[in-house]
Computed example of a mutant assay.
Amino acid sequence: MKKIGVLALQGAVREHMDQIESVGCEAVVVKEANDLIGINGLILPGGESTTIRKLLDRFHLLEPIQRLAKQGLPMFGTCAGLILLAGEIVGYESPHLGVMNVVVQRNSFGRQVDSFECELTISKLEKTVPAVFIRAPHIISVGEDVEVLATYQERIVLARDRHFLGCSFHPELTKDTTILQYFVDMIDEYSK
């Protein structure tokens, strides 16, 4: 059984864990470096990216996660998790993890009161999924080998860079597991 870790410092941790278990994988709470041992993939949930970064530093998780990223561990960032993965963040001198070849703009869909839900078409899967946007970022540009999987109002909101998957929205806040299943398939691809 695949073990998928969920960074449990802030955000919709329980919702991610419930979805992981619903697709037949084991969900692992990640709060310290030892929790990373033996996982097959890692989800970085939403929340507030600056706060999560401070907690990554406080709990000495930044470097172990960067090391696993460089070793090829599949990682999936939702909302703030996308910001953590991004190689560049508009208005910031340096990125957080900095492992995904994308440039991200924070809060590009407005404030908390501007949150919304919509249907998105995932081009590669030829499927429409529900998407919940809460103070969401978007991807301004992608590197050469990054695959754009979905856009909303001409903004990139879902992309894949090798073993990294980043989305602007919160798939864990819906009952649809399409995007999580896509990530599980990525884990299978990278474990071969």
Rank of each mutant, 00 (worst) to 15 (best):
E117P: 07
Q71G: 02
Q153I: 08
M75G: 00
S108D: 08
L173P: 01
D114L: 09
E126M: 14
M75W: 01
E88P: 02
L85M: 00
V157F: 04
R111M: 14
R106L: 14
V102M: 11
Q153G: 04
R111F: 14
K70R: 10
H96K: 10
V146F: 14
E88D: 06
S168T: 03
P64D: 00
I139C: 04
R160F: 11
V90L: 04
K70D: 01
R53V: 08
Q112Y: 05
E147M: 05
V102D: 03
G166N: 02
Q153C: 10
G81V: 04
A131I: 06
E63K: 09
M100V: 04
A136P: 08
Y92Q: 11
N107L: 15
Q112V: 05
G98P: 15
F164G: 11
R160G: 09
D176C: 02
L158Y: 10
L173W: 01
R111W: 15
G72R: 04
D57C: 02
H60A: 08
D161L: 11
H163E: 12
G77D: 07
F59P: 11
R160K: 14
D161K: 10
I65H: 02
F133I: 02
C118L: 08
F59W: 11
D161I: 10
L173G: 00
S115K: 03
L165G: 08
L165S: 06
V102R: 07
A131E: 04
V90R: 01
G72Y: 07
A86N: 01
L149H: 09
D114Y: 11
A80I: 05
S94A: 15
F76R: 09
E144I: 13
P74E: 04
F164N: 08
G98I: 06
G77R: 04
L84Q: 09
R162G: 11
V103P: 08
I140Y: 08
V132P: 15
V90C: 00
H163N: 14
V142R: 04
L55F: 13
K54T: 05
G110C: 14
K70W: 07
V102Q: 05
Q66H: 00
L85I: 00
G87V: 07
L62W: 01
V104N: 06
L73D: 10
N107G: 12
G166M: 02
D57A: 08
L55C: 09
K54Q: 06
V113H: 10
I122P: 07
E119L: 06
M100H: 11
P64T: 00
I122V: 12
E119K: 09
S141A: 13
R53H: 13
R111L: 15
V90T: 09
H138K: 12
K127F: 02
E88F: 05
F169N: 03
G81M: 04
K70T: 02
I122M: 03
F133Y: 07
R111A: 15
